[in-house]
Design a protein around this nucleic acid. Structure first.
Length: 311
DNA sequence: TCGTGTCAAGATCTT
DNA sequence: AAGATCTTGACACGA
């Protein structure tokens, strides 16, 4: 059984849980007004999250990536004095209860400025801080370890082996509650499916296969040969993958508006033996998901049987 | 209301 | 050593 999900933004609901403010804006304000502004943004994001999750459930979408901006400037010094976890504990509990009740799987993808294998101590520190923030949000929502934090290995720094080793030693520095949620994804320029799989096996971490990245960057491996090992990394957790279609031949790395249905069928047919959650990374977000479902249905293919039948 | 410059953050390639 | 690029939506402000 396959479940489909989308990332961060719904194009069908007007408001999304990704409202933010800027440092420059906050610096214009007095400390009290500053706190008020931050509070206001997070309150809006909670409101929008509940709205969006209700929409998701209505459309039987049980997989969703939470925007990293959910708590505005959470790891920036301008918000350092702000105890958002305490102030919003009621909201976290309420949202968490809804998420658990409906069996929604929430995941996150900390931004690309997070480089755990950096050679700069300050970058490593800010990365640890940002991962910790993401894990804390899931902890406060009371979500299990299927709510993962997806990240890339990072930079190559002219020496891939040394950079992989540095990832391992910096990983050991993460708090346990972050370690249990962190998972690694192959990227489209530096670390291939096999690089990441081997690193995941070394660290005992789950691996997210991004099939689009794999077509952009590999050493010619056939991903199907590696599928059982990739699935194995997830243990008792539900494996998660990413798919997107190339925007065009010339902009192959960029994401298209929708998923090419033939391409999806080809990918998904190899996953028939497994339970897999797949996040669609498309410009059209949730609309791409609903469109893909319609196209599959037209072809009589129930790849997402659970979601279709339990209507 | 609309168009435009700006936004916390890194790595890598180009000049 | 400094600047552009990646990628990217939304905020804030001025017209």
């Amino acid at each position: 059984m396959i479940r489909l999900g989308y990332a961060c933004i719904s194009v069908n609901t007007k408001n999304n849980p990704n409202k933010k403010t800027t440092v420059a804006q906050l610096n214009k304000l007095e400390p009290v007004a500053r706190m008020k502004k931050l509070r206001q943004v997070l309150q809006t994001n909670f409101f929008n999250l509940m709205d969006l999750l209700a929409y998701n459930v209505e459309h039987r979408i049980f997989l969703y990536r939470l925007p990293s901006e959910f708590v505005p400037l959470a790891t920036h010094s301008v918000a350092a004095q702000w105890d958002w976890a305490k102030e919003f504990s009621w909201d976290f509990q309420k949202a968490g209860k809804f998420i658990r009740k409906h069996g929604i799987r929430l995941t996150a993808h900390p931004g690309h400025f997070n480089i755990l294998n950096s050679d700069k101590p300050a970058v490593i520190e800010s990365t640890i801080a940002d991962f910790t923030y993401h894990a804390r949000v899931f902890d406060l929502l009371g979500l299990d370890d299927n709510s993962v934090l997806v990240t890339h290995v990072g930079g190559v720094f002219d020496d891939k082996a040394a950079s992989l080793d540095r990832f391992v030693s910096n990983f050991e520095r993460l708090p346990d509650h972050v370690k249990k949620r962190l998972v690694l994804e192959n990227d489209d320029t530096s670390f291939t499916m096999r690089d990441v799989l081997e690193l995941c096996e070394r660290l005992g971490l789950p691996m997210v296969l991004d099939i689009h990245h794999h077509t952009c960057h590999s050493d010619g491996e056939n991903w199907i040969d590696y599928l059982p090992r990739i699935i194995q990394t997830w243990g008792n957790r539900t494996p998660k993958m990413h798919i997107s279609s190339p925007k065009s031949e010339s902009e192959f790395r960029a994401h298209a508006d929708n998923i090419n249905v033939e391409q999806f069928i080809q990918f998904a047919s190899s996953l028939a033996d497994y339970n897999v959650d797949i996040i669609l990374e498309c410009k059209n977000k949730d609309d791409a998901l609903l469109t893909l479902r319609r196209e599959l249905k037209k072809k009589g293919i129930g790849v997402e049987d659970f979601a279709e039948n339990s209507q």
